[in-house]
Simulated assay, not measured.
Amino acid sequence: MRALSTAIEGVLILEPKVFGDARGFFMESYNRRAFTEVTGLDVDFVQDNHSRSRKGVLRGLHYQIRQPQGKLVRVTSGAVFDVAVDIRRTSPTFGRWVGVELTAENHRQLWVPAGMAHGFVVLSETADFMYKTTDYYAPEHERSIAWNDPSIGIEWPLAAHGIDAPQLSEKDRVGQLLAQSEVFA
């Protein structure tokens, strides 16, 4: 496994070693020792989540203001554009975002540390999105920032994938602007 830095300190793209031949492939999707070696982090994951969504579904930008979650995310079927937004007020990259395409074929994973808002949009007909978290889901502490907040300026690749408008949950339709959101110190 190797870790690639991004424009936001702490957000990492992870590329596992994939061993393939005519029969298919094998990879370790998670190995604590290898993760610690390449990231310098020793984290405890407490929950695994799996969602399946259709093309154009946009989930996010979510975070928990208390019980913040670090997330190790990946796609096992299909493709998504995955985004992390730095919402740590004292960070030099506060309000900036990074995005990466995660697909079943590229096997990439994204480490999204606590202190980030996170979201993704499905680019393929369907996508299975799996992620490990460092704290438990706490709906009373969950917050949502508007996916299209102009102060953040995420360049979602909607038109390039034939998506006229994203499909949003009610919670994401009423997401707040970053300027009005609770953020981390």
Rank of each mutant, 00 (worst) to 15 (best):
L123Q: 04
R59C: 04
S51L: 04
T90M: 10
T134Q: 06
K132S: 13
I87R: 08
V122T: 15
R88M: 12
M130Y: 04
M116A: 11
R54P: 00
W111G: 01
V80D: 07
V73P: 02
V46S: 07
H62F: 15
N49C: 11
G95C: 06
Y131W: 15
D86C: 11
Y63A: 08
R89N: 03
L61G: 03
V85Q: 02
M130R: 04
D82M: 11
T133Y: 03
V46W: 09
G119C: 11
V121F: 15
P68W: 09
E125S: 15
L58C: 12
L72Q: 07
V80Q: 09
R54W: 06
R54A: 13
H62P: 12
D82N: 14
K71T: 01
T133H: 03
V75D: 06
T90D: 15
D82V: 08
L58D: 06
V57W: 04
H107R: 06
Y63I: 13
V43L: 15
P92F: 05
W111E: 01
G115L: 12
Q67R: 07
G60Y: 03
D82E: 13
R96E: 14
G70Y: 04
R74N: 02
L102T: 09
Q47T: 13
V57N: 01
A84F: 09
D86W: 14
R54M: 10
G70R: 02
D128F: 04
L61K: 09
T134Y: 07
V57E: 04
R89I: 03
V73C: 05
E101W: 02
A79C: 09
Y136W: 12
V80L: 13
D48S: 10
S91D: 10
W111H: 09
T76F: 00
W111T: 01
G119L: 07
T90Y: 10
H62W: 15
R108W: 04
M116F: 15
S77E: 10
V73M: 06
I65L: 14
V122F: 11
S51K: 01
H50R: 12
L123R: 03
T103C: 07
Q47K: 12
D42P: 02
P113V: 01
L123T: 02
S51I: 06
A79G: 04
S53M: 11
A127P: 01
H62D: 14
T103P: 05
G56E: 12
A117L: 01
V73F: 09
G99P: 09
F81V: 07
Q67T: 05
T93H: 11
R89H: 08
Y136D: 07
R52Y: 13
A79Q: 12
R52T: 15
L72N: 05
S53P: 09
W97M: 11
Q64S: 10
H107Q: 05
N49F: 10
T133V: 13
H107N: 03
W97S: 14
G60N: 02
M130P: 00
V121H: 14
G95V: 07
D48C: 02
F94G: 04
H107P: 00
A104C: 01
V121W: 15
D48V: 08
E101K: 12
E101R: 13
E105H: 00
W97P: 09
A104G: 08
V85P: 05
A84L: 13
D128I: 08
Q47S: 13
V112M: 09
G99E: 10
